Structure formats: C-alpha cells, structure tokens
Simulated assay, not measured.
Amino acid sequence: MRRGLDHVVHLVRDIDAAGESYDLLGFTVGARNAHPWGTENRIVQLPGFFIELLQITDPSKISAAAPGHVSFGAFNAHFLATCGEGFSMLAFEGTDAAAEKGILDQAGFGGFETVDFSRKAHRPDGLDVEVSFSLAFANDPASPDFSAFICTQHHPENFWSADFQRHANMVSGLKGVVLVADTPVEHQRFLNTLCDVPVLRARDDWYVAQTPRGEIDVMSRPLFTERYGVAAPKGPGLRVAAVRFASSGAEELRRALAARRMVEETIAGMVVVPPRAVAGATLVFEQTESKSA
C-alpha cells in the first residue's frame, strides 16, 4: 500500500523557544503535550502532515533500547548528544501496524516490537480528547542517526483540526522532505519499502519518490548545499535535512524574515530559512499561486 508522509520530529533543547521561532515564521503552534517516556511535544499541523517539536523533559523516564525494542526517548537523547538539534525522525502514514511490521520484517528492515501509546490532546474548542497511535519502526543499518517508522492513528478525528492548519505565513500544505546521504542509491530499497512507491534516479547524486502526500528527495550533501545554500547535516547514512512547504505568501514572508535576519536570500523562487534560525532545522517555503488569483 502506497504510504504518504505523516510527520517529522524536530528535536530541540527548549520547546518553548522553538515554538516562538515557528511562531515568528508565521505558523500556528499547538500547546505542550506529555509522553509517557520523558518527552513533551508541540505540534505544527498541515493538512495530513505535521511537524512534531520535541523536547526531552524527564530523562529518568527514558527506557534503554534493547534487542527488538526501539526506545523513542533513548534514540532522541542520543541524537541530541551526538548530532545536536534538528530533524531526528521521519514518519509515514499507516493503517495497520501489525501488517506493516510484517512488511518491514520481511524486507530485513524491521525486527522491532510495535509501540502503542495514547495521550490527552487539547482541542481549539477547549475539549480534552484522547489521541492514540501505533508505530512500526524501521531500521537502515547504514544510518545510525536516522529513525523512521510507520504511524497509525486510531482516533484521527480527535487529532486533526482545521483551526490548527491556518497559518499567517499562508502555508497551505507540504511539498516534501529532503534527505541527504553520501551515496543516495544505497538507501533506495529501504525508502522504497517504507513508502511503497518507486524511488527513482534523477541523477547519480539525487533520487526522488512521489508519495501520496509529499515528495521525498534524497540527495548528496554537496548537492543539497548547492541547491539550498546551507550546510547539510553531517554523519553516516541518511539524515533528514529539510522540510519543504507550499505557500502563496512566500515573497511576503521573505521580506519579514530578512528584516529579522532569519533568512539570507531567496533561491530560485524559494525562501530558505537556515538551521541557525530554527534550532538546527532547514525550512523551505516555495511560492504557489493564491487560490483567488
């Protein structure tokens, strides 16, 4: 089953400061939510996709990783210590965690127990509701600083909110994510298994997959820097380097961010916000025509 992008985890040291940065970029940022494993998040929603701002708040609750078991908290604690702030995890939309675990296991990229959890969420209308998820984790042995999973939401009607998807920066949706690797072709089968769509060669240092929700670009680190004007995340294997957004207000955003020194240049019709401005993450806004045009 073809799987679109579901969300990306943006790991930060100070979740409220990161929320303020996203607010300055014109995003609507949700309230804090607690996880049972010592982390808290804040959500930036788009239609069908979200950015999960994540902070480790109680290390004493983090369980150690073990064979066959992924520790969400331990992976992110290690990532923060070794890589610093930035995009640490990538999630794909799922419908049946047990079946998706079987697919990952058969392909040689799984071997982990599914993770099931729930938490309370505060809706814009003031109601507290329950949201719950099942996660089927994948492992690319060549990518120790990259974690991916397939995420099934059990009460999506409680999670998604049109009010949270209205943003002052006129972002209307996800364009895609950009991954970097020293040799993109080495990760082709892994990504193809995750999204179940062809990961095709654009050129030797650039592969592309068109998922049902968002594009995945996998490019070499030099090509990423050439294209976006910022340094790519370091490390072996895959890393999530950038998230791309569609916005009819990209040009206005560029002027506002330039005044705050949060952006340097517009590159080929894109507004690129560098990692120094947003807690280690690169955010790319691409101009689209407004619906009224």
Rank of each mutant, 00 (worst) to 15 (best):
P59D: 11
G86Q: 05
G73L: 13
D58H: 11
S71W: 04
Q45G: 01
A64R: 15
L46Q: 09
P59M: 12
A74Y: 05
H69P: 01
Q45M: 12
E52V: 10
S71G: 09
N76M: 10
G86N: 06
A64P: 01
F50A: 07
F75E: 04
P59T: 12
H78N: 13
P67V: 07
E52K: 12
A77W: 06
F79W: 02
Q55R: 13
S71I: 08
N76G: 08
F79H: 05
F72T: 09
I62H: 10
G48S: 07
I62F: 10
L53M: 11
F49V: 11
T82R: 10
G84S: 05
P59H: 11
F75M: 07
G48M: 04
F50Y: 15
C83P: 00
G48V: 07
A64Q: 14
E85F: 07
A66M: 10
A81C: 03
T82A: 07
S60D: 14
T57F: 00
I62N: 11
A77S: 14
G84D: 02
C83W: 01
E52Q: 13
F79D: 03
S63N: 11
V70P: 01
G68D: 12
E85D: 00
F49H: 10
A74V: 07
N76K: 08
L80D: 02
F75R: 05
P67T: 09
P59C: 12
I43N: 00
L80Y: 02
A81F: 04
I62E: 12
L80V: 03
Q55T: 06
S60I: 04
K61G: 09
G68P: 10
K61W: 03
V44S: 02
Q45K: 07
I51G: 00
F75H: 08
I62Q: 11
F49S: 09
F49Y: 14
G73K: 11
L54I: 12
V70R: 13
E52W: 09
L46S: 01
F50T: 10
T82G: 00
S63W: 08
G48I: 07
V44T: 09
Q45W: 01
A77V: 07
H69T: 13
E85K: 05
G84A: 05
F50Q: 08
S71K: 09
V44Y: 04
G68N: 11
F50C: 08
F72R: 05
S63Q: 14
G48C: 06
G48Y: 01
A65G: 14
A64C: 10
A64E: 15
V44N: 03
P47W: 06
I62V: 15
T57E: 09
L80K: 03
F75C: 06
F72S: 06
A74W: 03
C83G: 01
Q55C: 07
H69A: 11
G84Q: 03
A81W: 06
A65L: 02
S60V: 08
L46E: 06
G73H: 11
L53G: 04
E85V: 01
P47V: 05
P67L: 08
I56C: 01
I43T: 10
